[in-house]
C-alpha cells in the first residue's frame, strides 16, 4: 500500500535540501566582537583594572599601552580599560533590555492585532503610526528630558536616569518591532493552516503560540538585531546631548565626557567611538544573516 512516498509519480520536483547561507568573514568577525563585548560585560570584573570611577591623579591623560593602564587614562585620570568594560556592561544591558522588553511587548501587540483584526487592530495601527511619526531620537529625547528631568531642586539619581532611559528606549522600540510583527503575522495568519487549525478546534492563543509566533519569529529576530544597533546609537546620541547616562558610565557618556579633551587625549574619543561603531555593525551583520536565511526559507515555502 505505501508507495514509498518520495519515489511516487508525484515526485517530479526533487526534495529541497536546506542550504545554509554562506557565512562570510564579516559574520565571523561580528560574532567574535559580540562575544568579546558580552564577555567583558559579564566577566569584566575579573580583569586586573582599577575601579572605573576612581581617578588616578598620577596618571592624567596617559596614552594607551601604559604599563599600569593598558588603554591609557582619561584627562581626569580614569582608567580607560575599566571604563570601556563598565561601559560595555551598561550599554549592552540598556540596549538588550530595551529591545527584549520593547520587542516582546511590540510583538505581542502586533501579532494579536493582526490575528484579531477589527477595532483593536485599527487602534494599534493608529498608535504605532503616531509613535513612528516622531523620529526615534527626537521621541526618546522628549521622553528623557522630561521624565528624567534633573536640576538642583529635582536631582535625579543615576538609577532613575538609567531606568527612564530604558523605558524611553522601550517606547521607541515597541512600534518599530510591533509593526514588523503585525505585517508578518498578517501574512502568516491568512495561510490556510491557521484556518485548518481553527477548524479542528484549536483555541486562539494556542494557534498564535503554535503557528503564528514560530513563523513570525525570524522576521522579528532579524529586525531585533538591527534594533539593538539603533538603540546603541540613540543611547550614544542622548549621552552626547547631555541627557543620557551621565558621568562616563556608558560608551556614549564616555564620548560626551571625552569630547572636550580630544586634543590632549584622543583615545578618550576614538576608543568608545570605535566600540560603539563595531558593536552596531556587528549586530547589523547578525540581523542581515538572519534576514538572508529567512529570505532563502521564504522562497522555498
Amino acid at each position: 500500500m505505501p508507495d514509498n512516498s518520495l519515489s511516487s509519480t508525484e515526485t517530479a520536483e526533487p526534495v529541497v535540501k536546506t542550504k545554509k547561507p554562506r557565512k562570510t568573514i564579516g559574520f565571523y568577525l561580528a560574532s567574535a566582537w559580540i562575544s568579546l563585548v558580552m564577555f567583558l560585560a559579564l566577566f569584566g570584573w575579573v580583569l586586573p583594572t582599577p575601579q572605573w570611577d576612581e581617578a588616578s591623579y598620577d596618571n592624567l591623560g596617559v596614552a594607551p599601552f601604559h604599563p599600569s593602564h593598558i588603554l591609557g587614562t582619561t584627562n581626569d585620570g580614569y582608567d580607560m580599560m575599566a571604563s570601556i568594560v563598565n561601559g560595555a556592561k551598561i550599554s549592552i544591558i540598556v540596549s538588550l533590555v530595551a529591545v527584549l522588553i520593547g520587542g516582546g511587548i511590540g510583538s505581542f501587540i502586533g501579532i494579536t492585532a493582526a490575528y484579531f483584526r477589527g477595532k483593536y487592530d485599527f487602534a494599534v495601527t493608529m498608535i504605532f503610526n503616531i509613535m513612528l511619526s516622531i523620529p526615534n531620537l527626537v521621541l526618546s529625547l522628549a521622553l528623557l528630558s522630561v521624565l528624567a528631568y534633573s536640576d538642583e531642586n529635582n536631582p535625579a539619581s543615576m538609577t532613575r536616569r538609567v531606568v527612564v532611559l530604558i523605558i524611553s528606549l522601550i517606547i521607541v522600540i515597541i512600534p518599530i518591532l510591533g509593526r514588523i510583527a503585525r505585517g508578518s503575522a498578517l501574512q502568516w495568519g491568512s495561510r490556510e493552516f491557521v484556518l485548518a487549525s481553527k477548524s479542528m478546534g484549536s483555541k486562539n492563543f494556542f494557534i498564535i503560540r503554535k503557528h503564528i509566533l514560530p513563523n513570525v519569529a525570524p522576521a522579528i529576530l532579524a529586525i531585533g538585531f538591527l534594533a539593538v544597533g539603533s538603540v546603541i546609537i540613540v543611547e550614544g546620541s542622548l549621552a552626547l546631548l547631555g541627557i543620557g547616562i551621565p558621568g562616563g558610565a556608558s560608551w556614549g557618556s564616555m564620548l560626551a565626557n571625552g569630547r572636550g579633551n580630544i586634543e590632549y587625549s584622543p583615545h578618550e574619543v576614538y576608543l568608545p567611538a570605535l566600540c560603539i561603531a563595531f558593536t552596531v555593525i556587528s549586530f547589523n551583520w547578525f540581523g542581515d544573516y538572519v534576514r538572508v536565511k529567512l529570505d532563502k526559507r521564504e522562497s522555498k515555502i
Partner: peptide, 22 residues
C-alpha cells in the same frame, strides 16, 4: 554594508580627530 551602520556621531568625532586635530 559595514559603513551603512556606522553611527554618524562616531564618524563625526573620528573625522574631527583626524582632519581637524591631527
Amino acid at each position: 554594508f559595514t559603513t551603512v551602520s556606522f553611527p554618524s556621531f562616531a564618524l563625526a568625532l573620528i573625522f574631527s580627530l583626524i582632519f581637524a586635530v591631527n
